[in-house]
Design a protein around this nucleic acid. Structure first.
Lengths: 103, 103
DNA sequence: AAATCATATAAGCAGACACTTATGTGATTC
DNA sequence: GAATCACATAAGTGTCTGCTTATATGATTT
């Protein structure tokens, strides 16, 4: 759902979590390193991100490994397409996005 | 600022306003048509959207005309580029985004 | 210049949200 | 199978947010 997606992204702590996961998948405890946040808080944030399909989990023995879920990102891109008429002529941001993808 | 951007988009009423403006620029009073919302509420929402650079205003005689501001949209696209490694092979959403733009 | 009309601000309130501590669950290891 | 360890849920609290009504601002029109 669209609302869950944007609400999930509205919190800076969750965006930080997402960015960390984009760099490397890891479990919840490792995610906490360097972030001044309690264990339940991290658990709650991850639940919100999972529900928004921005993150997905996969049990890995004793730990649960969290990783970026492309589904949520695609949903944002889809949302952005509604405003394609308003892109400026120079779309550097989109250009770089494209260069990384196979046509 | 990134936080203002996502917080602005986190509210469904504001996303509705943005979508209406994407279809056609208009003033605040016209925007209210069909939306069960008070005049001050609309004014406050527009202020938030303007601050996030998703909407810009331009006085037009007696009215103020509001329109989509590409700056905010580009900022989202920029943010998305951080996760380009996670795009799936089939990127229909992005494809359609590109097809509308001149290379 | 006075009146009018579109928009902005003030003040206050109810609900949502992010955080905490305490406790529960559930898989793994010894 | 009992202990352990990662993670989830419960319950409570302060703050933020979006809404309202009332009032102010500020440009336009007569």
């Amino acid at each position: 759902m669209e609302n869950e997606l944007f609400k999930a992204l509205a919190d800076p702590t969750r965006r930080t979590i997402l960015e960390k996961l984009a760099h490397e998948s890891m479990n919840a405890s490792t995610l906490r390193d360097g972030m001044n946040i309690s264990q339940p808080a991290m658990s709650q944030h991850l639940a919100v991100l999972c529900k928004a399909r921005l993150v997905r989990q996969e049990r890995q023995g004793r730990y649960i490994n969290y990783e970026v879920d492309p589904d949520g990102l695609v949903a944002i891109a889809n949302w952005l397409t509604r405003y394609r008429a308003y892109w400026p002529q120079k779309i550097d941001a989109l250009k770089s996005l494209l260069e990384e993808m196979d046509p």
